[in-house]
Design a protein around this nucleic acid. Structure first.
Lengths: 235, 235
DNA sequence: TTTAAAAACTGATAAATATCAGCTTCTGCG
DNA sequence: CGCAGAAGCTGATATTTATCAGTTTTTAAA
């Protein structure tokens, strides 16, 4: 799962994608018995920091950003969740309010599962519980990684890392196209990397001049992943 | 548990301190049956990033920093664990190598519990598993918080927050002294806050001139927690 | 108690990043 | 299609933070 044999991409992704695989057919159908499917348009909020969780969300298709909003209205994106990922379950498990918010960054189809059903399956299936423990522990690795990078790396390195991670998320499984197109705003990029939006633009320009990326309007093509990894200065 | 009714201190602390309370007497004694107590001197490494976990650690007394070392040998402190806290269990649960390192920041007494015993109790006690799920979910809140603050706040605000959080950890439960003394090096502070050590010193000087802290050699007294919270600009 | 190493501290300067104001280009909607 | 609002872009400047090259103080070991 290592990208180009150098960049440890698995340290940047949660593994919630396969969580539900450990459920028996019966357990799975019980879990989703009362689910409701909802369409979210780009920008729509799924849940908001500080509110009380009523259940968990399973992303059927699309992409969702998890973020915190600072007192000064500055947004920090913590993670971008992909299709098949589970979100919003931490707060249910810890019995707290949501510590972050979630919003669709592209049109998404998301199933809502009431927390009672989630908890009931959790009590019934030790395998599911074990799988969740494993997933949460892996998340710890991912967040730990993020803290260290945000605190210690330069803006250029951080942007490079963000692009590498996003490339993986935007890679369509069944196509072998080399140039992956990222469909993400400069603003969202800035909020992932923790720098000003203007600086994202300037750094992208730099990458463009070096042939690492190409842009057309708001689209971003990754042209040279090898040099992007070099830019990221990873390990 | 809210500090001065303003600063949400619980968002900065893991809740592993009470994890073992849910165990029955039998389970607890089985868990610690093969434990070995070890003394760690200030600076001693407990485990190192990248190594394979053989068990978990229970801090009996003292304080331990969890940190990542960057490629350029820069250290980022992720968390400071206090007595009664459990560390090193994520890697056991996720089946990965340690994603971070741990080292004593003061002389500590730490019990090592073999991973087989930990996992066996985990399988035996659903209450323990639930408690761990809860703890891990809460950790998610704490790390999320850290990411947002490190990425978005100024050095002054971050240092203020670090001091508030440390004050809580250095507060002796059975004394009602107002001035809490922090026993932490400027370097460790710098590595928590993600700024240069020289700037920690300059900011501390500023705080000193404003009567918020006092220092004597490497000791730091928190004199005015209210103004420190104001400095942190929290919420 | 002396002393060498480590940690704390200082001022000057360099580098990185943010902010601001304005301009241009996209994009979706009537 | 045309148009308004949003997003992208640019250059100048301000601000923040890091780096460097020391000096002083503290600590712990001989």
């Amino acid at each position: 799962m290592s990208l180009s044999g150098i960049f440890p991409i698995d340290r940047w992704n949660f593994t919630t994608q396969s969580i539900l695989n450990v459920l028996s057919e019966q357990d799975y159908s019980d879990l989703v018995a009362n689910q409701s499917d909802l369409k979210y348009l780009k920008g729509d909020v799924v849940f908001r920091e500080g509110s009380v969780p009523a259940g968990i969300f399973l992303i059927r298709s699309g992409k969702v950003k998890k973020y915190k909003v600072d007192s000064l209205a500055k947004e920090q994106i913590i993670y971008v969740a992909n299709h098949e990922e589970l979100i919003g379950y931490h707060a249910v498990l810890s019995g707290e309010r949501y510590p972050d918010s979630a919003a669709a960054i592209e049109d998404s189809l998301i199933s809502f599962i009431p927390k009672e059903d989630f908890i009931s399956i959790l009590h019934r299936s030790p395998a599911f519980t074990q799988r969740l423990l494993k997933a949460l522990s892996h998340e710890f690795t991912v967040l730990t990684n993020s803290i260290s990078v945000i605190a210690q790396r330069t803006a250029t390195e951080r942007l490079a890392i963000a692009l590498i991670v996003l490339r993986e998320k935007y890679k369509d499984e069944d196509s072998d196209v080399q140039d992956i197109i990222l469909n993400i705003s400069r603003m969202d990029l800035a909020n992932m990397v923790g720098i000003a939006q203007e600086n994202v633009i300037r750094l992208l320009k730099e990458f463009k001049e070096e042939g690492i990326v190409e842009t057309d309007g708001r689209k971003i093509w990754i042209k040279d992943i090898k040099r992007l990894i070099k830019k990221s200065n990873y390990k």
